Amino acid sequence: MSFQKHNYAKSLLLTALLSASSAFADTVWLNNGDRLTGTIKSLDAGYLVIETAYSGNVRINFNDVKTLSSDTALVVRDTSLQRDYRAKLVAAEAGTVTLNGVARQGDAAEPVSQAVALDSIKRVVRPRPFLNEASFSGRIDLAASQKFASTDTKDYTLDSHAQLRHGMWRHRLGADYTRSRENDTDSTYNYGAGYSLDHFISRKAFWQGRVSYRRDQVEDLTRQVSYGTGPGYQFWDDELGSFSVSALLNRVHYKYKDGYSEDDYAASLRWDYVRYFMGQEIELYTRGEVLRSFNGETDFAINGEVGTRYNVNSTLSLYLKYARHQVSGSRSGLNQSIYSTGLGIKW
């Protein structure tokens, strides 16, 4: 009897825990009778993304959704693009959802609690808190190929980016490595790393400090070192992507293969853009820096990349990327274009 009571108590506890966990989860009801619980991440281009504990990110055609609910307020935009809502979603009749929160149209805002048709909703985004606990994310892109013919060719590419965010601070670290060999002779061999620290003054404005290093074992320009500081602006940062720019005053150092070195001050413009489509399945991105020297022999420099990515799931992706490294001036500079495709790993 005591054994049965013990099992009964465990069952009650388990049921209570499951009920509590589902009570603090977003829920999506489908037209076929299925129900998914987790965290609603975004709605864009007709695809709803919900993060579940059992299957990771799940993409759902929004036409298959019967109704849905959220535990916290989301940013909702209607198809007319005239109204934005900051509201909780409350399950309603089939094909509708109730919005409880605030509606904004231009500069005007008013409380709202009304049922709207699902087909009147164009976009849903989960807002990211301005002040948050420490969060760490990153990605590594890998590509390698080897060809045996009249000439033996080996190509290796590695590119990594990591970000740590806590409170008013954001740390970003990036590193890359590229090497191409033909018959044991390097045709391309370079690597570099960069670190930036952002301190947010407001929700969008921040002050940035940055240092970068690049080494080349083949070209005449063998080393580039830059460090600088300046203001930046975060236009947006949510589940559908992010876009930020910064303008820096830099101190740059160049060293050449013949031993000549050059130091100068320069101004630079940096950018970082990411946009997701098709329920975060497709990703377009570009990041880089354009630098202009004030009075040195080196006039102009650019380090940047642009690419697209197919996200197989929340961890693995396939990417295609073009990277550009160029330094122009009166001395022998640098002019590299690198195309790569491979596998990406995200955490």
Rank of each mutant, 00 (worst) to 15 (best):
K10W: 02
L13N: 05
T15M: 12
L17T: 10
A23V: 01
F24G: 02
L30A: 10
G46V: 09
V49R: 11
R59S: 13
F62P: 01
N63H: 11
D71T: 04
S80N: 15
R83E: 00
A87R: 00
K88Y: 06
L89M: 11
A92G: 14
L99Y: 03
R104S: 00
Q105F: 03
A109D: 12
E110I: 01
Q114I: 05
L118N: 04
L118R: 00
K122R: 11
R128V: 07
F130C: 04
L131C: 06
F136E: 06
S137I: 07
I140T: 15
F148V: 13
T151N: 13
K154D: 00
Y156A: 09
T157H: 15
L158D: 09
S160V: 02
H161L: 08
R165Y: 05
M168W: 13
W169H: 10
H171L: 09
H171Y: 12
D184W: 02
D184H: 07
T185N: 12
D186A: 14
Y189C: 07
F200L: 04
K204V: 04
F206T: 06
W207H: 06
V211Q: 07
V211Y: 10
R215V: 07
Q234F: 07
V245W: 09
H253P: 03
K255H: 08
E262N: 06
E262S: 08
D264W: 02
A266T: 00
A267G: 15
S268H: 07
M278I: 06
E283S: 12
Y285G: 06
Y285S: 12
E289N: 07
E289Y: 06
L291V: 13
L291M: 13
I302D: 15
E305P: 09
N313V: 00
S317H: 02
K321I: 01
S328L: 05
S337A: 11
I345S: 07
